[in-house]
């Protein structure tokens, strides 16, 4: 089975069970290597079915302070792109079967070598790629490599995307589409934007791909609200914040459970 197919299977199963998929993000190497592996395994046990594996970059311009700080910490501890792939491999060896989507900015990937990165990522157990500063216009080489390797290319759409761009970007996505809930950067927020349902509906008009919503989701309640309108719930900053400090693992596990409950909550129609 290819990465694209594994991702499709996760969304198909959730659809059959009339619920959404919970997709946590973790900054690889934060707070350290050992804790990273524990956190991702623990999130897997809470019921996360799809993972966003954050490869740290020195200049994460789509990220808010929480993820900036976490990835900076990971980098100062010497976390490299190769380390991140090695951690994925270890998680596979430890028995994790959920699809992993690597999230990284373009320069680390470009410096590694686009084709070589895709090959090594697949070999390690990566199923999809999310590169927030790489629009489809600039992604010809990456898409060719991913197509050949069966790796999903997941692009982001934003509330500012025009209908024309939605159609264009959707036509380049495989696996699912990542909808940015707010006009802004990553980070927990108190409220979901009021126009989120309209935005999701607008994208639905142009695609049959599953739609996962991220940015700003921090609580089970918010996850449940998103799960009512979308196919996936992506949570990053709130989990990274929970992973911070002595009780990090316990806090991540507790929040993970809450978010799974939210994402899996029965839909009211």
């Amino acid at each position: 089975m290819s990465g694209v197919e594994r991702i499709q299977a996760v969304f198909a199963r959730a659809k059959a069970e009339q619920r959404a998929v919970f997709m946590p993000y973790h900054a690889m190497g934060y707070p350290d290597r050992a804790a990273t592996l524990e956190i991702i395994r623990a999130l897997g046990e809470t019921g996360a079915e799809l993972f966003e594996i954050g490869i740290p970059h020195s200049d994460p311009l789509a990220d808010g302070p929480t993820i900036q700080t976490a990835t900076y910490t990971a980098l100062t501890q010497g976390t490299t792109v190769a380390d991140c792939l090695a951690m994925v491999r270890e998680l596979r060896i430890a028995g994790m079967t959920q699809p992993f989507c690597a999230m990284t900015y373009y320069n680390p990937l470009f410096a590694y070598g686009v084709r070589r990165f895709v090959e090594d990522a697949v070999a390690a157990g990566v199923d999809g790629l999310i590169v927030p500063d790489l629009p489809p216009e600039e992604a010809e080489e990456l898409e060719a490599a991913c197509r050949q390797a069966g790796v999903a290319t997941i692009y982001l759409l934003a509330p500012t995307s025009t209908d024309e761009r939605i159609r264009f970007v959707a036509s380049h996505c495989t696996g699912f589409i990542y909808l940015v809930s707010v006009t802004g950067i990553t980070g927990a927020r108190a409220d979901l934007p009021p126009d989120l349902a309209d935005f999701v509906a607008r994208v639905r008009k142009y695609t049959n791909l599953p739609l996962a919503v991220g940015f700003g989701i921090a609580t089970g309640e918010q996850a449940a609200a998103v799960a009512r309108i979308a196919d996936g719930v992506i949570v990053g900053s709130a989990l990274v914040k929970a992973a911070t400090g002595e009780a990090g693992l316990a806090q991540v596990t507790a929040l993970g459970k809450e978010l799974v409950m939210g994402a899996h909550a029965p839909r009211r129609d």
């Binding site: 373009y106 934003a158 500012t160 995307s161 006009t183």
Partner: peptide
């Protein structure tokens, strides 16, 4: 050159 930015900015 080119445009390597988050999608939010592409329309702008």
């Amino acid at each position: 050159g080119g445009k390597f930015v988050p999608e939010t900015l592409m329309p702008a």
